[in-house]
C-alpha cells in the first residue's frame, strides 16, 4: 500500500444504516435491536447499523462476515445500487474538498458514478453481463454510456482489456453465455475497469469457483489493483480471500462492524470472540 499521508480518504462513508421495516421506538432510538439484527418488538430488520467506512487511494479494504451479517447490503449501498435509510457518502473525485453526499445524488448522477467512478464485480456474472451479446460489446457498453462514439477505438480498448484478463483473442466476439464461470468473472472485471474508475467494489467474486480458478481470479485482481493503484473494497465470507488481498479488514456481524484493523493484526491477534472463531476455522 502506498498512501500519501496528508491525503484524505478517496472514499468515506458515515453512519450507514439500512433498515427493512418501519422501526419502532425501541429499535430506532437505540439504532437497532439489542440482539441480532431483527427487532423483537416490531420485526424490523436492521441489515446495516451505523457503519463507517474509509478507504484510501491504492488501498484494499476487506469486509468479512457470515451470510446475513450485512456485508453485501453495505456494499450495495456503496455501489449506489440501493439507497440506505440514513448515512452520508463522499467519493473524492474533484480533489480533497469534494464534500458532495453521493446518497443525495440524482438518478442521472448516480448512473454516471456507477459507470465511470465505481466499478462493481458481482458474484453472479449474469447480473452484470449481457450474456447473449459479445464480450467486446459488454465492455463497449460502459464506454458507450460514458459517451464514446468511435467503434475502432472502443474495439481496441476492449481487446486490450480482454487480453489483460487473459481472454483469448478468438473468443472476444463470443457471448459470455458460452464462457466458463472463471472466464465470465474475468470479463466482468474487464468491464468494471473499462472507464478507469478510481474505485472497484468486489462482492464475493470468487465464491462458487473451483479453487484453482479462484486463485487465478485473485491474482488478476491483485495485479490490476497494483498496476492502477485503485481503491478496492472486497466483500467475502472467506477470510482466506481477504487475507490474500486486503490491507485492512472490517469484521461484520448482525449489521455492525465488530472489529477492524490491519488484516495481519486481525489474523494474528483477533480481539472479539467471533473473529477468533473465524480465524480458528481458517487454520
Amino acid at each position: 500500500m502506498n498512501v500519501a499521508p496528508d491525503m484524505p480518504p478517496r472514499l468515506e462513508a458515515h453512519g450507514i444504516h439500512v433498515r427493512h421495516g418501519p422501526g419502532c421506538d425501541r429499535c430506532l432510538t437505540g439504532a437497532g435491536p439489542e440482539q441480532g439484527n431483527r427487532c423483537a418488538a416490531c420485526g424490523t430488520v436492521h441489515a446495516v447499523r451505523q457503519v463507517d467506512v474509509q478507504a484510501f487511494d491504492g488501498e484494499v479494504l476487506g469486509i468479512v462476515g457470515e451470510s446475513g451479517s450485512g456485508k453485501s447490503s453495505l456494499l450495495r449501498t456503496l455501489a449506489l445500487e440501493q439507497a440506505p435509510s440514513a448515512g452520508m457518502y463522499l467519493i473524492r473525485e474533484d480533489g480533497p474538498d469534494d464534500h458532495q453526499n453521493r446518497f443525495d445524488a440524482s438518478d442521472q448522477a448516480i448512473r454516471r458514478l456507477r459507470n465511470e467512478t465505481i466499478g462493481l464485480v458481482r458474484q453472479h456474472a449474469h447480473e452484470t453481463l449481457r450474456m447473449r451479446l459479445s464480450a467486446t460489446g459488454n465492455i463497449a457498453e460502459t464506454m458507450l454510456a460514458a459517451g464514446h462514439r468511435h467503434v475502432g477505438r472502443m474495439r481496441e480498448r476492449a481487446a486490450g482489456l480482454l487480453d489483460d484478463v487473459s481472454i483469448a483473442r478468438d473468443r472476444h466476439l463470443d457471448a459470455p453465455a458460452t464462457f466458463s464461470g472463471g472466464m465470465q468473472q474475468r470479463v466482468q472485471i474487464a468491464r468494471a475497469i473499462a472507464n478507469n474508475p478510481p474505485v472497484l467494489l468486489l462482492d464475493e467474486v470468487t465464491t462458487g469457483l473451483d479453487l484453482s480458478v479462484q486463485a487465478r481470479v485473485l491474482d488478476l485482481i491483485q495485479r490490476i489493483q497494483r498496476e492502477r493503484q485503485m481503491t478496492v473494497i472486497l466483500v467475502s465470507h472467506d477470510l482466506a480471500v481477504v487475507r490474500m488481498l486486503a490491507d485492512r479488514t472490517l469484521v461484520m456481524r448482525h449489521g455492525q462492524v465488530i472489529e477492524h484493523g490491519l488484516t495481519d493484526r486481525i489474523l494474528e491477534d483477533p480481539h472479539m470472540p467471533y473473529t477468533q472463531e473465524l480465524v480458528q476455522s481458517l487454520l
Binding site: 448512473r111 460489446g137 463497449a140 457498453e141 458507450l144 462514439r149
Partner: peptide
C-alpha cells in the same frame, strides 16, 4: 421511459455497435 427522461441512449448505440461487430 426512464431512459428517455435521463437521455440514456447507451442501449440504442450498443445494438448498433453489436451490429457493426457482426
Amino acid at each position: 421511459r426512464k431512459r428517455h427522461a435521463e437521455a440514456d441512449y447507451t442501449a440504442a448505440y450498443l445494438a448498433l455497435f453489436e451490429r457493426v461487430l457482426k
